[in-house]
Simulated scan of single mutants.
Amino acid sequence: MSRARTSNEIWWARIVDRVDELLHNYPKLPKKPLPENSLPLKIGSNITTKNYNTFLNNHGSSGYKFQFELNSDNKTGNVYIIVHYNPDGSGVQIAPDVAVYPNITFVPKPALSTVIPPPPSDKAGNPHARIICEVGVGQSVGDLKQKCESWMLEQYVRAVVSIKILKPRSGIREPTTGYFYRTMTAKLYRQGIATQRWDFGNIKKNSTDPTGDPAPFNAPNLAHFQINIPVGEVFWDPRQFPVPPDYAPASPPVVTVPNFTIDLYRIQRAVLKAES
């Protein structure tokens, strides 16, 4: 059992942390909460990959999401607060907004796998995420697409859900709720299947008349505005390599629900409420 630190030890630890911050070029978090329209916000310049990873380990749970953009020297970069980490293959630590992993009860840790070469893992050595969700607000559609396609290069990532939330339409609001009208787009990437797309905001993408030309996405449980991902994809764990073309993942007998179902109307309402 580890002992509790005394107040003196905590005080000295804070001094050491402060000295470390002064001696190294780390990104600096804002002192006040950020409004959405201020993103992306640069919080560090010419930051080394090592210092960025240290910063991310210390502040990854701060509530912000960060992007690291490498400079031409491939050694340093600029850090921004946006809505995502950036998977660019540079060795920078990354994390998706939401991820679904298989439990090691059903899919063993990669180190124990009989597949040669062994499948990849997360930093803790657990199975790689199978389903990922990325939500974009402050960054461009192109950046979000590149991020999702980068995840799909990993064969153990079976599906990626992309949600792009555009800026609210100023000056026009829903008459009953007072929510701003806002365009939203979702995409589903799956291995071996064409990308699917949904426009699910409370206003049509190019419309300026939400009352006379209302968006069809106006109620929960509409079949055409639900994203369905087979639950079996979470248990994707082929025992041969290369993967046989007829391989199909199977859910354990205790799992009886066929799909993960994402009702986009519920996401729409949550977004609009947060902005009101």
Rank of each mutant, 00 (worst) to 15 (best):
T6Y: 02
N8P: 00
N8Y: 09
A13W: 04
R14H: 12
I15T: 09
H24P: 04
K28N: 08
P30V: 09
P33V: 08
L34D: 04
E36H: 07
N37S: 14
K42I: 13
N46M: 05
T48Y: 06
T48E: 11
G60K: 00
F66M: 08
L70T: 14
D73V: 14
I81W: 05
H84G: 00
Y85N: 10
S90E: 07
A99E: 09
A99Q: 08
T105R: 09
E134N: 05
G136W: 01
K145C: 02
K164A: 04
R169P: 00
S170M: 07
R173H: 13
P175D: 12
T176Q: 14
G178Y: 03
Y179P: 01
R182C: 12
M184N: 05
A186E: 07
I193T: 15
I193G: 01
A194C: 02
T195K: 07
G201E: 01
I203F: 03
P210L: 13
H224L: 13
F225V: 04
P238S: 13
F241S: 13
F241R: 12
P242H: 08
D246M: 06
P252N: 06
P253I: 10
T256V: 13
V257M: 11
F260T: 04
I262Q: 02
R266T: 14
R269N: 10
A270C: 09
